[in-house]
Deep mutational scan, measured.
Amino acid sequence: MLEGKVKWFNSEKGFGFIEVEGQDDVFVHFSAIQGEGFKTLEEGQAVSAEIVEGNRGPQAANVTKEA
């Protein structure tokens, strides 16, 4: 698991990027966000996630919002 913060997230398109210190930004799709209801993230929000290899490079999986 790694910790980072949301760089930006487009709720209409359902994707965005997470900033991780010392690494390239990581793509995040709404389907990777854990929880019930409408899955979205806010800019600057702290999150933790796993990194997996997607079709277009590294992407976030099992994204959870930090308190």
Rank of each mutant, 00 (worst) to 15 (best):
F9C: 07
V26P: 00
F17M: 08
K13D: 04
F27S: 02
G44T: 04
E19N: 07
V6F: 03
G16L: 03
V26R: 00
E53K: 13
L41E: 02
R56S: 09
R56H: 10
Q45F: 05
W8P: 01
G22R: 03
S31L: 08
E43V: 15
L2I: 15
V28A: 02
V28H: 02
H29A: 01
A49G: 12
N62E: 05
E3G: 09
G54H: 07
W8G: 02
A32I: 04
D24G: 13
G54M: 08
G16A: 02
E53R: 13
I18S: 00
G37H: 06
M1I: 13
G22S: 05
F17N: 01
K7P: 04
S48I: 13
E42A: 11
S48K: 15
A49E: 01
I18Y: 01
Q59H: 10
F27G: 00
G4E: 03
V47A: 03
G37M: 05
K65M: 10
A32Q: 09
R56D: 07
F30T: 04
S48V: 12
V6E: 04
E21Q: 12
S11K: 15
F30E: 04
G16N: 01
K5D: 05
V26F: 05
W8D: 03
D25M: 08
N55D: 12
G4R: 00
T64I: 15
E43S: 14
V28G: 03
F15H: 06
N55T: 14
A46D: 07
E42Y: 15
I33K: 00
V26S: 00
G16M: 03
F9W: 15
N10W: 09
G35N: 07
D25I: 08
A67I: 12
E3M: 14
K7F: 05
I51V: 11
R56V: 07
S31T: 12
E50P: 03
F15W: 14
V26W: 03
K7W: 05
F15E: 03
V52W: 09
E50C: 13
G4P: 00
T64S: 10
N62C: 12
A49K: 00
E19H: 10
F9R: 00
K5H: 11
K7V: 07
Q45H: 06
R56Q: 09
F38W: 13
N62T: 10
A60I: 03
N55R: 15
K7Q: 05
F15S: 00
G14E: 00
A67G: 12
V20W: 08
G35R: 00
Q23T: 09
K7S: 05
E3P: 13
N62F: 12
G22A: 05
S48D: 04
G4Q: 00
A46P: 11
K39W: 05
G14V: 00
T40S: 10
G57Q: 04
V63T: 02
G57H: 05
F17D: 00
N62Y: 11
K7A: 05
E50Q: 14
I33E: 04
G16E: 00
A61C: 12
G57E: 02
G16F: 05
E12W: 12
K65N: 07
G22N: 09
E21H: 11
E66L: 15
K5S: 08
A49R: 00
G22W: 05
V47F: 01
L2N: 07
N55H: 14
I18T: 00
E12A: 12
G14D: 01
F30C: 08
T64H: 13
Q59K: 08
G14K: 01
H29S: 02
T40R: 08
E43H: 13
M1D: 07
E19A: 14
E50R: 10
A67N: 13
E42S: 13
F15T: 01
E50Y: 14
I18F: 02
V26D: 01
P58M: 10
R56E: 06
I18Q: 00
D25H: 07
F17H: 02
V63A: 01
P58D: 05
Q23V: 09
A46G: 09
S48L: 15
G57M: 06
P58S: 08
A46F: 14
N55G: 10
V20E: 03
Q34A: 11
K13H: 10
W8T: 00
K13S: 08
F38H: 07
G37L: 04
D24A: 14
E66R: 15
A61L: 10
E50S: 13
S11F: 10
V28E: 02
M1V: 13
G4F: 06
F30I: 07
S31V: 05
T40W: 12
E50G: 08
Q34Y: 09
G35E: 09
V28D: 02
K7Y: 05
E42W: 13
W8Q: 02
A32P: 02
Q45A: 09
F15P: 01
G22D: 07
P58H: 09
E43Y: 14
L41S: 01
Q23A: 11
V20Q: 03
E42P: 03
V28K: 01
L2M: 11
E3C: 15
E3F: 15
G54Y: 06
V26C: 06
V20Y: 06
I51F: 07
H29D: 02
E50I: 15
S11M: 10
A67T: 13
S31I: 04
A60K: 02
G54W: 07
G14C: 07
F9Y: 08
G35W: 08
K13E: 05
I33H: 01
G37E: 05
G54A: 06
L41W: 03
A67V: 12
F15Q: 01
A32T: 05
F15D: 02
N55L: 14
G14Y: 03
H29N: 02
R56C: 13
K13A: 08
E21K: 12
E66D: 12
T64C: 11
N62G: 07
S11N: 10
A46Q: 13
M1G: 09
K65R: 10
V63G: 01
N55E: 13
Q45W: 10
F30N: 02
S31H: 07
V28F: 11
Q34S: 11
K7C: 09
F38A: 07
F17Y: 07
Q23P: 03
V63D: 01
F9T: 01
V6Y: 03
G44C: 08
Q34K: 13
H29Q: 03
Q34W: 10
N10P: 00
A61H: 11
P58Y: 10
E66W: 13
F30G: 04
I33D: 04
K65E: 05
L41R: 00
A49H: 09
N55A: 14
Q34M: 13
V63Y: 00
V52G: 05
I51Q: 04
F30P: 02
P58A: 08
R56M: 09
N10Y: 06
A67C: 13
F15C: 06
T64G: 07
L2E: 06
Q45V: 08
T40F: 11
E50A: 11
G22K: 03
G37Q: 05
G16H: 01
G35Q: 09
E3H: 15
F27D: 01
L41M: 05
S11P: 12
A46H: 14
M1W: 13
Q23R: 15
I51N: 02
E43N: 13
S48H: 14
E12V: 13
G16C: 05
E43C: 13
N55W: 14
T64L: 12
F15Y: 14
